Simulated assay, not measured.
Amino acid sequence: MEITLDNVCKDYGEKRVLDDISFSLGKADIVALVGPNGSGKSTLIKIIAGVHSQTSGSIGIDGTDIRKIDPIELAKCIGYVPQHFTYTLYSTVFETVLLGRRQHIKWSVSDEELSRVQHSLEALEMEHMAGSYMDQLSGGERQKVFIARALAQDPKLFLFDEPTSALDIRYQIEVMETMREITWERGAGMIIAVHDLNLAYRYADTVVVLHGGKMAGYGKPQEILTPECIRKVYGVDAFVIENEQGKFLVPFRAGSAP
């Protein structure tokens, strides 16, 4: 599945929060949206997910305008994990993940549906928590539950808004490695908004740098996330180190405001 954004703009009243956003996403690609707070990452994710509509421009899925796709069919195609999620306190982890299959279930829950939930929990090493109630979990554990719910949905496109923000370093890496493997195995695309530039550097095929609602960079992480770009967009001095594990960004000083 190919996703194409063409000159997407979003206004809230007289304020333009996204201006002329254009990029494309192919099969098994990961696109990372990076940029400071308030740069428009979450808004863009919500527009692609169909939560909000753009003011102008178009978003196409395999050449079809997203606004012309039946909402139920669109929900089957897109697995969306928002930055702030709601849940029922007294539902179990298994029940919460099963909700990811709600667009596919017609009359009753089949063995296949239950199996998909089980496999999604296993992918995130949460099968032992299937019977736990959501209000018993930590913030990071709940975040992993909602990622598992998106996996159970088996979409063609994953939309993640800061999916690792409540996770410690180990689980950030585990989740990103799991998602990288899943995009390869399923041929699914992913658009992910992240603050950690090194996660984008390591796992993304392409980065879109947003600054003040506009695109300040678009391309391969190693080519776009340069010290010059970081200084311009974030107002931070940084340098790149390279070893046998790859390249890494190291911020070391707050510079002048961008």
Rank of each mutant, 00 (worst) to 15 (best):
M1P: 09
D6E: 11
V8W: 01
C9M: 08
K10S: 00
E14Y: 13
I21Y: 11
S24N: 14
L25M: 14
D29L: 07
L33I: 10
L33C: 12
N37W: 10
S39M: 05
G40K: 06
I48N: 01
A49D: 01
A49T: 06
V51R: 08
S56Q: 08
S58M: 09
T64I: 14
D65E: 13
D65M: 06
D65T: 05
R67T: 13
P71W: 09
I72Q: 05
E73A: 08
I78M: 04
I78W: 03
Y80I: 06
V81L: 09
V81E: 02
P82S: 05
P82R: 02
H84S: 14
H84R: 12
F85T: 14
T88S: 12
T88P: 02
T88N: 06
L89K: 13
S91K: 08
E95K: 09
E95P: 10
T96P: 05
L98A: 14
L99D: 13
G100T: 03
R101Q: 03
R102A: 15
I105C: 04
W107K: 13
S108E: 10
S108K: 03
S110P: 07
E113F: 03
L114E: 07
S115T: 10
S115M: 10
H119E: 12
S120C: 10
S120L: 07
L121M: 10
Y133Q: 10
D135R: 06
D135W: 15
S138R: 12
G140W: 05
V145W: 02
F146E: 03
I147R: 00
A148P: 05
L151F: 14
Q153P: 01
Q153H: 01
D154A: 15
D154R: 14
K156M: 14
L159P: 07
F160P: 05
F160L: 15
D161T: 12
P163W: 07
T164G: 10
S165P: 00
A166S: 14
D168Y: 11
R170L: 11
Q172C: 08
V175Y: 05
M179W: 03
R180M: 04
E181K: 12
E181S: 14
T183C: 15
G189H: 03
G189L: 04
M190N: 00
I192W: 09
I192G: 00
H195G: 02
H195V: 00
D196L: 01
D196F: 01
R202N: 07
Y203K: 05
D205Y: 03
D205S: 08
T206A: 01
V208T: 01
M215K: 12
G217K: 01
G219N: 03
Q222D: 12
I224G: 10
L225G: 04
T226G: 02
T226L: 00
P227L: 00
P227N: 07
P227R: 09
I230M: 03
R231P: 01
R231S: 09
R231Y: 11
Y234I: 02
F239P: 07
F239Y: 15
E242R: 11
Q245H: 12
V250R: 02
P251I: 04
F252L: 08
F252D: 08
R253C: 06
R253S: 09
R253N: 04
